[in-house]
């Protein structure tokens, strides 16, 4: 009897938590499909009287939000691919290759994690301005390339590659770079997916830096464009909800499809010991 009551309590709590967590998303989706004005009706409606996609059409045609979707996809994709290349090479080297000063350099990198990104932001803006990179896509990408977190994640996994595999390839006369390309990359594939997922989501969701470095509203990333849109269309609840759906949908789908890699990044490479 006591056991049944405990089970009911636990599952009741989880269900209540899930309802509270999902409620804003469900209302967002529902409101985005309501006819104009219905989302601000009194008393509030939970479901549309009839489903309409007019707000999505307005977003994509009159407000040309499609442009910003493409910008965000392109930038997040570029940051993911370039960042992955840079961080995987470094992570493997820190994990598996002996070079002078390795430990010292790695400790300095970890210590740098303490410094909040905002500290570097002001001079970085001036540097990019001097280089003519303010208000360009390169200006958005550049600070996102190398990530200490990414290097750390790869290093933890590279250390677990057995030396015997690498040594066997060395005996066969393979060069170190060939071993990295053909053996290490293959063995590291699962954690590469994890890192790619984190990079893409981080880049897609980033707000402050694109807001600072992009001044031309045609170049805005989706979150910056959305924040801008609220200013002009704050009364049009249904339209704003459609914009929010478009903004979160890609990362939500990506997460649901690849969530075991997300969890693996936090648990296996994350808290160890």
């Amino acid at each position: 009897m006591k056991r049944i009551a405990a089970a009911a309590l636990v599952n009741g709590l989880l269900t209540a938590g899930a309802v509270l967590t999902l409620m804003p998303f469900l209302w967002m989706i529902s409101a985005s499909l309501m006819p104009t004005g219905e989302a601000s009706a009194i008393p509030p409606r939970f479901l549309p009287s009839h489903v309409t996609t007019e707000h999505y059409r307005v977003l994509l045609t009159r407000l040309a939000l499609g442009r910003h979707v493409v910008v965000s996809l392109g930038l997040a994709g570029t940051i993911t691919v370039l960042g992955l290349a840079v961080n995987v090479m470094a992570g493997y080297a820190f994990g598996k290759l002996p070079f002078a000063g390795k430990e010292r350099i790695f400790q300095v990198l970890l210590a740098a994690l303490v410094i909040p990104a905002q500290v570097s932001m002001l001079p970085l803006f001036l540097m990019l301005k001097a280089l003519g990179l303010v208000n360009t896509f390169a200006g958005v990408v550049i600070p996102g390339l190398a990530s200490v977190f990414g290097i750390f994640l790869i290093r933890q996994h590279a250390r677990e590659i057995p030396d015997s595999i690498l040594d066997a390839a060395r005996v066969d006369g393979a060069s170190e770079l060939t071993i990295f390309r053909t053996i290490a990359l293959r063995l590291l594939t699962p954690i590469l997916v994890t890192l790619a997922l984190f990079s893409f989501m981080g880049a897609w969701n980033d707000f402050l830096w694109p807001l600072v470095v992009l001044t031309d509203d045609r170049l805005y990333t989706l979150p910056v464009a959305l924040a801008n849109l609220v200013g002009e269309h704050v009364q049009e609840t249904e339209l704003m909800m459609a914009g929010s759906v478009v903004t979160v949908l890609p990362v939500v789908l990506l997460f649901v499809a690849l969530q075991r890699y997300y969890v693996a990044g936090l648990t296996a490479g994350g808290v160890k010991g």
Partner: peptide, 15 residues
């Protein structure tokens, strides 16, 4: 529970 974590802050703040 993890769903809000991965979503775009700007978008959910608007909601």
């Amino acid at each position: 529970f993890v769903l809000p974590v991965v979503t775009t802050l700007v978008a959910v703040a608007v909601v």
